[in-house]
Amino acid sequence: SEEEEEEWRRAKERGEEIIILGILWKPNDEEAERRIKEALRRV
């Protein structure tokens, strides 16, 4: 969703871990980033 995407962007800017759509994303975690982008597209 729009607000999840916004939340994720803010976490990326701050360089902090975030759990979004049930996926743990850490800074520079390209695999998780790809999965999150896929999940955001499906929503």
Rank of each mutant, 00 (worst) to 15 (best):
S1I: 15
S1E: 12
S1A: 13
S1K: 12
S1M: 15
S1G: 15
E2L: 15
E2W: 14
E2Y: 15
E2P: 13
E3Q: 14
E3N: 14
E3R: 14
E3T: 13
E3W: 15
E3A: 13
E4M: 15
E4V: 15
E4A: 15
E4H: 13
E4F: 15
E4Y: 15
E4P: 14
E5M: 07
E5H: 04
E5Y: 09
E6N: 06
E6C: 14
E6W: 08
E6M: 05
E6Y: 08
E7L: 12
E7F: 15
E7M: 12
E7A: 15
E7T: 06
E7D: 14
W8L: 15
W8G: 05
R9Q: 14
R9Y: 13
R9E: 15
R9I: 13
R9P: 07
R9W: 11
R10E: 10
R10H: 09
R10D: 09
R10A: 11
R10Q: 13
R10T: 10
R10W: 06
R10I: 09
R10N: 12
A11E: 03
A11R: 04
A11K: 02
K12I: 13
K12F: 09
K12P: 01
E13M: 09
E13G: 04
E13N: 06
E13R: 05
E13K: 06
R14S: 09
R14L: 11
R14W: 06
G15E: 06
G15H: 05
G15M: 07
G15A: 05
G15Y: 05
G15N: 09
G15V: 05
E16P: 02
E16M: 09
E16Y: 07
E17C: 12
E17D: 10
E17P: 14
I18N: 01
I18Y: 09
I18L: 05
I18G: 00
I19L: 13
I19E: 12
I19Q: 07
I19G: 02
I20T: 00
I20W: 01
I20Y: 04
I20S: 01
L21T: 04
L21R: 10
L21K: 08
G22S: 00
G22T: 03
G22C: 04
G22Y: 07
I23P: 04
I23M: 01
L24V: 07
L24I: 08
L24D: 03
L24N: 06
L24R: 10
L24A: 06
L24F: 05
L24H: 08
W25Q: 01
W25C: 06
W25R: 00
W25D: 02
W25E: 03
K26I: 12
K26G: 07
K26F: 08
K26R: 12
P27D: 06
P27V: 01
P27M: 00
P27C: 07
P27G: 01
P27H: 00
P27R: 00
N28M: 09
N28R: 05
N28Y: 09
N28Q: 08
D29R: 01
D29I: 01
D29H: 01
D29K: 00
D29S: 03
D29T: 01
D29P: 01
E30K: 09
E30G: 10
E30A: 09
E30W: 09
E31D: 11
E31W: 03
E31T: 09
E31R: 04
E31G: 07
A32Y: 03
A32F: 02
A32Q: 04
A32P: 00
A32M: 02
A32I: 04
E33W: 04
E33D: 11
E33P: 00
R34S: 11
R34V: 09
R34H: 08
R35H: 10
R35G: 05
R35V: 07
I36S: 00
I36T: 02
I36Y: 02
I36E: 01
I36F: 06
I36G: 03
K37N: 14
K37L: 15
K37Y: 05
K37H: 09
K37P: 00
K37Q: 08
K37W: 05
K37A: 07
E38W: 00
E38V: 02
E38I: 07
E38A: 06
A39V: 07
A39F: 03
L40P: 02
L40F: 04
L40N: 02
R41V: 12
R41Y: 05
R41M: 09
R42Y: 07
R42C: 11
R42E: 12
R42H: 10
R42V: 13
R42I: 12
R42F: 07
V43F: 12
V43D: 08
V43Q: 13
V43N: 10
V43C: 12
